[in-house]
Design a protein around this nucleic acid. Structure first.
Lengths: 210, 210
DNA sequence: TCGTTTGTAACATGGTCGTGCTACTTAAAT
DNA sequence: ATTTAAGTAGCACGACCATGTTACAAACGA
């Protein structure tokens, strides 16, 4: 937005268009993997010409980076609202299920979250060899650990968890468990079903509680 | 090996050559990802002409499938020897560390296993959208659960673990934890160090023991 | 020696890719 | 009505890729 805009052409919101392109990208990634997410394929999926896509994203890499940041944002919003809900809960009896629900946000328990997890796995593995994706991937990694750590610390503070626990170790253990469940559900959805995941998560939380 | 070989040309062992090509493929995958593991790049890495590689593998896909089977085999061998060692152990005091060592075989605790885990993650994620890789990926998934399940069942039989545990749930939980640790170590080696992994694993086993 | 088979190499083909570039359309501002 | 910039569309280029095919070298059995 320059100071002097002498001609403003369209009603179309650039932001909305960029998100539409990103949604198309996500569909391609979910269906065929990141390696098939070329500008051509994404443009076709979005029903746009390749030049139109390039109007919003100067390069293929910029599109990927933006898409991963978008995913980061969506996950972050869900986690923040879940965390606030726990904070607002009055009694310990209310908190238990809310904690399970919050951590469940990180698992592909329904179709939407499954799609999200598929894309998540595709991007963070791609980030291993694509430097431009690493910052977002690292923020996602840290974000999960921050949330898990706070939940555990809160539970200890409320006496729902024994005090002898090493917070860092338990955070890493629970976060790794969640990651592992998500990965397995993405790669073998018929074996790692939502029921399996919730059972395992519930078991883990129960054991933590002593 | 046909019954009538009417002309034997070379001293070179075809088996050894195939493995050399696969090793080159693994190096490329580790360094640059599966998407860069083209016949050209692999041939270059192996110091061969592209035609020579195709002499041993009729297609790119066949090479990938063979490579994943090779990985499957290597992991399987390590797990089998580890399992035998536990079976041969006499006292319970000996078994504890051996169990930890066996499960540690599934974690990238040293440089070799780290390379292996990187390749493992690259292949199983690629298997999601590459049908030809799925059988091997599924065998790997099941194999880990079989081993983990047997270890847990053995521990219960020896009284090292309480009897009230649900074997299926605990197997899935421990397997997911191992997978999650491996994934995190591959993607964020500086955060998920070998020390972190062994600490988490030890903690989990200790908690299981009650 | 000759013939056969394996190993090695190179070329042509058809395809996809990212990107630079050009041209046309649309609508707000003057 | 004219100007101006944003949006849209599409082409052309050079690079890379997998694969089919052909050609040649090497090594053994006959």
């Amino acid at each position: 937005m320059g100071v002097l805009k002498r001609g403003v052409p369209r009603i179309v919101d650039a932001e909305a268009r960029r998100r539409a392109v990103v949604d198309a990208l996500f569909r391609v990634v979910r269906r065929e993997g990141v390696e098939q997410a070329s500008l051509r394929n994404v443009a076709d999926e979005a029903g746009l010409a390749i030049g139109s896509v390039r109007h919003y994203f100067d390069s293929h890499d910029e599109l990927l980076v933006f898409a991963l940041q978008e995913l980061e944002e969506r996950v972050g919003v869900r986690l923040r609202t879940g965390a606030e809900r726990i904070f607002a809960a009055g009694t310990s009896d209310e908190r238990g299920p809310l904690v399970e629900a919050l951590l469940g946000e990180l698992l592909p328990l329904d179709a939407d979250r499954r799609d999200e997890s598929v894309i998540w796995l595709a991007f963070i593995t791609a980030a291993r060899t694509r430097p431009s994706l690493r910052p977002s991937a690292l923020r996602l990694h840290r974000g999960v650990r921050t949330v898990v750590g706070r939940v555990l610390a809160g539970a200890v503070a409320h006496g729902a968890l024994p005090e002898g626990l090493d917070p860092a170790v338990e955070t890493e253990r629970l976060a790794a468990l969640l990651d592992g469940l998500a990965v397995n559900a993405v790669l073998h959805p018929d074996l790692t079903t939502p029921e399996v995941m919730t059972t395992v998560l519930r078991r883990h939380l129960a054991e933590l509680a002593g």
